[in-house]
Write a protein that binds this DNA or RNA. Sequence first.
RNA 1: GCUGCUAAGAGUGGUA
Length: 242
Amino acid sequence: QTAYNILISGCCKHDRNLGRAHEIWKEMIGNNLVPDVFNYTSLMKGYCKFGQLEKALELFKNMVEAGVLPNAVTYSVVVAGYCEEGRIDKADEFLNEMEDQGIVRNLFTYSLLINKLCKERKSEEANELFILMLKRGLVPDVVIYSTLIDGYAKESNLSQAFELYEKMSNDGITPNTITYTNLICGLCNSRKINEASELFKKMNLKGLVPDKISYTTIMAGFCKIGDMKNAQGLFTEMKQKG
RNA sequence: GCUGCUAAGAGUGGUA
């Protein structure tokens, strides 16, 4: 059963293998195995990821009818599917149904909604949701903070972005490479390359190792203002460090 | 084809 799930989830990573995933699914059933919540969720994720939300919803119905209880992961997979289609309203509705079933919203479900709102450049709404989440007693983590920071940074609302950065530090949550990259990206887009550069150094001083994305982000910032010299310097450094 | 290796969340820029 677990072996089947490895195959199914593996197939679900590329849309061209979705059909294959379904065949494995059928084979599994043909071998008298009853799909469990993992199997359902894996296949549903494949469908959600590649724009076939209807099929995922059908599976959801099937599993409930078969007496297999969806868990928080199952719900969040569907929520991700709704978000993918830009249906935040439906996603939220679905989460209400989840809560009716006695499963509370967690960091993952909030993160999905917050991320989608941020991507739609609705950071204020995202922030309101974030505050609601806090009121419900959930403890934010570095992912949620980074998501929100990115949202504000992308709206060029740098003051809010840095305010959150301060807040998370006060809350004892350590910013990671992604958090810094998000801030740096915001600074670069506002042509504040000097501040971006400072932050990049600060990040290194804190022992964080810039990755490929950190480098390309700040390099793009230098390129943007025509400072090819520094851009190339960073590129050299990047190659040296592997 | 790019970054795969067992179910859910975050970051850059891409070429056909």
